[in-house]
Design a protein around this nucleic acid. Sequence first.
DNA 1: CCTACCGATCGGTAGG
DNA 2: CCTACCGATCGGTAGG
Lengths: 197, 197
Amino acid sequence: MARIKIEKNSSRKEVIVSKAAALFREKGFKAASMRDLAESVGVEAASLYNHIKSKTELLHEICFGVANRFMHKMDEVESGSNSAIEKVEQLIRFHIDEMVNHYEEVYVSDREWKHLADPYLSNFQTQRRMYRKRFAAIIEDGIRNKEIKKIDAPTAVLILLHAIGGIESWHRSTQKINASNLTDNMITILVGGLELK
Amino acid sequence: MARIKIEKNSSRKEVIVSKAAALFREKGFKAASMRDLAESVGVEAASLYNHIKSKTELLHEICFGVANRFMHKMDEVESGSNSAIEKVEQLIRFHIDEMVNHYEEVYVSDREWKHLADPYLSNFQTQRRMYRKRFAAIIEDGIRNKEIKKIDAPTAVLILLHAIGGIESWHRSTQKINASNLTDNMITILVGGLELK
DNA sequence: CCTACCGATCGGTAGG
DNA sequence: CCTACCGATCGGTAGG
């Protein structure tokens, strides 16, 4: 009985977090009100607080959910035995996959993290900085191995991440064909620009 | 006398718009209050309304100021007699220049335009769509001329614009050397990926 | 999960 | 350019 209740509560919370992500993406964190969210969930605003502690808690859940997935992927890619250029392509494909399948959450964690409160804010910023450093280290490996052009690795990382994260049409192309087309174009343009000729 | 007063007012307004851009960039449009802005200008909140009509008017000024500059540059580039790849490079350099010299305004017009009210909102969206179409048309010319790889032009435009617009470190590198380094890297990575080998 | 409600803050106005 | 102030809306709580 208690077990079932916990499960019900946590799935209810997941629904709220997911609806919050959609709302925060559409209106921005500050402009989205808890009354908006309540309406989209189908309850009164006060009822939301039986499942969550605060509005910012919703933002934590979204931002760290995304950050954790990226960190785990980075662990996986780093420990693999692929070439640097293959690792870069793996990461690009993962980012695209995240944009296609978790568009709202990724978008929000990318553009609304500034509204996190401070123990979480600096934690998030640190994770972000580390992720980028590890990504740049892979590119630097590739430069040393003569797989990748001699470019500034941190700049290349920013270009890759923003190029992918900026495309708003990912979520419109849930049709796998379109997403796959977009992905191929992306890789051609981005990796084509990186590969040693 | 009247002349001088008008000039004083308009320069006062320019200061307010500029301070607003810095504040909107830092906190986001919704989270930045008119009281914050008043403090940064050095007056009481109510006094701002002798120079501006509303908070959203500030956003109009910022967004359309940027949009107009981009449109004029596009006119200039289009009417030139350079090759397609040269035109693309001109536009990239202009975007970078805008990021270095008008960071706050460009950042805000890029990420806070959603908060425009509706006659302005759709106008802005249309201008944006048109700019991207004209940019894509240049790339398509380049593809036809065999200057540029056969890629999807609209996707390439989004990649270019977001790659440049996403770099937060532009404004930290007002030292011309750093900006120039960043620019060269950018061109190498982006155009290098576009040029026909 | 709801009704009822609170204190804080917001954009903006009146009047001088 | 300021003081004084308004109505609306916000995140969140009490109590059931």
